[in-house]
């Protein structure tokens, strides 16, 4: 067994299965620390790829899988920078997160997201790189980025377009509403529904099942059915950076940071 425990996540490799557990309060927000450790994880997974059949990504936080990008860090870091340098800073972050997400998306083993609670924004983008999404029936999914004057920036739209019908993609993105696990399964986002508190157990059973198949055939099948939309992912970074330079975005981030209401993901 090999294992690591960081400040934002931990992982364990046992008998060809990696379990990556996000664990940073309050809701596994993806900021610089989480990204640093995800990059370290990818390096670890890359080294063990030939001996690995599956990877389960889960969360130890009660609040859910992941609430998305760390908007508080993004706001404070951006506010401290000269406006001319903000774009450069956000682009560097996006390049790094895209490299991480892209590797996970095309990893030669099977990736399984075990989702409960909130799975919003960057958290949904992380779930979308996984091959199989297993959701607790209390899980909720959303892309609330438009309330900030932005689009999802971690590869969300290209991957959502790859996997789902455009009508649902438009509804999710343009309304910013959150949808429950049953709806997410009905549209094909979620592969398997789990009873409350059972998503990880089902994800582990699925990982054990995929381990029974031939590794070469498994990798070939994945490559065949799950193309990486590289061109659109590059385009997404450009659109995001163009939008990010507008003063309205900083104003919306400030409003979010100061919001103490019951639905901060809504405008």
């Amino acid at each position: 067994m090999k294992s690591f425990t960081g400040q934002a996540l931990r992982w364990e490799w046992r008998d060809g299965v990696i379990e990556l557990t996000l664990d940073r309060a309050p809701a596994n927000e993806i900021g610089s620390l989480m990204l640093d450790e995800l990059e370290d994880f990818v390096e670890f997974a890359r080294q063990l790829a030939s001996e690995t059949s599956a990877c389960v990504i889960t969360s130890a936080q009660k609040s859910g899988f992941c609430a998305g990008a760390d908007l508080r860090e993004l706001y404070h870091r951006s506010a401290a920078l000269d406006p001319a340098l903000r774009n450069e800073s956000i682009r560097e972050f996006l390049e790094r997160i895209h490299a991480t997400m892209n590797w996970l998306d095309e990893a030669p083993f099977v990736t399984i997201a075990a989702v409960h609670g909130v799975c919003f924004g960057g958290g949904l983008e992380l779930a979308l790189v996984c091959d199989v999404l297993i959701a607790d029936k209390m899980a909720r999914f959303a892309f609330p980025e438009l309330r900030l004057g932005l689009i999802p920036g971690f590869g969300g739209i290209p991957r959502l377009k790859r996997d789902l019908g455009n009508g649902f993609v438009r509804d999710l993105l343009l309304s910013g509403r959150s949808v429950n696990a049953a709806r997410a399964q009905a549209v094909g986002l979620v592969a398997q529904l789990a009873a409350e508190g059972q998503a990880l157990k089902i994800a582990r059973a699925t990982a054990a099942q995929v381990a029974k198949f031939d590794a070469t055939a498994r990798a070939a099948a994945k490559k065949f059915i799950k193309p990486i939309p590289h061109e659109e992912l590059r385009h997404e970074i450009e659109v995001f950076c163009d939008l990010f330079t507008r003063p309205a975005v900083m104003a919306a981030l400030k409003k979010f940071v100061e919001n103490t209401g019951p639905m901060p993901h809504q405008p």
């Binding site: 809701a27 609040s63 859910g64 609670g117 909130v118 029936k137 209390m138 899980a139 909720r140 959303a142 309304s175 910013g176 509403r177 959150s178 949808v179 429950n180 696990a181 049953a182 709806r183 209401g261 019951p262 639905m263 901060p264 993901h265 809504q266």
Partner: peptide, 26 residues
Amino acid sequence: DSLQTLELLSRLENHFNIELPDYEVQ
């Protein structure tokens, strides 16, 4: 709090077998 609000929303949607968009209950 906001997370508990979403939990309640999920609980209601699952019970009544409906969808209740966030903006309708905001």
